[in-house]
Design a protein around this nucleic acid. Structure first.
Lengths: 120, 120
DNA sequence: CCGAATCCTGTGAGATACTG
DNA sequence: CAGTATCTCACAGGATTCGG
């Protein structure tokens, strides 16, 4: 994936396709931590290693998918602000669910299945 | 993605990487619907269009990631049964959370935020 | 300051054929 | 029945360069 496969058939796949790019999650994460919005270059600094084109692409796609709002102030110098939409905000709790599962998975990969008999 | 990026840093990305392949979700879905397990060829029939190699690869990866159990009965003809592990089962509720979000997203993409008031 | 256009490459995905 | 072995191809990701 993040190749689109069963178009429209499955909301889960749709969702994962939307957030499936390499930078989408980090991007959403930083946007979630800046509810007042954040500027392009600030975003770029936080996402260490991202190039202009990847940042622009990712932002555009998230915008088209209705997760991100872009507000442009026609000033000199230019000023563009990005923030999560309501739909974008709603995604965060879902991601936290996944996060917990991922943490459980990492724990279970450590050996501790054997020594756990102390709490019963 | 599902290129691995920030190895180990983020459980969310880890999780999405694991379930990120093209057939992973459909596969997990069918496994979730057959708690007693399901055989290779039965799985293949349900996943219409999948090739042997993709099915094998996907199963192996899920097995290595601890989501799927492979049980082989040394009979003639061979009989191999696949089923979800506990970790695999735990993933399902998380996916349902994502599913709900995806459904909300599709609703909001239909135009009906706008037309709600005026058609006089 | 905020991007777009072009070109290149590594990897996921698949077609096809063969095996214990 | 349950897989493997190669080969090819498309596409996401990225380097580089340029513009309002």
């Amino acid at each position: 994936m993040t190749t689109k496969i069963y178009k429209g058939n499955c909301p889960v796949i749709d969702a994962l396709t939307i957030i499936g790019g390499k930078w989408k999650l980090p991007l959403l994460w930083h946007l979630a931590n800046n509810q007042s919005g954040i500027r392009y270059n600030a975003l770029k600094r936080k996402l260490d290693g991202i190039t202009n084109i990847m940042l622009t692409r990712s932002l555009r796609e998230l915008e088209e998918d209705g997760l991100v709002t872009r507000v442009q102030y026609p000033e000199i110098p230019p000023h563009v602000n990005y923030s999560l939409t309501e739909q974008g905000e709603k995604l965060i709790p879902a991601l936290l669910t996944i996060k917990e599962w991922g943490e459980q998975l990492q724990e279970s990969k450590n050996d501790w299945g054997k020594k756990a008999s102390s709490h019963s």
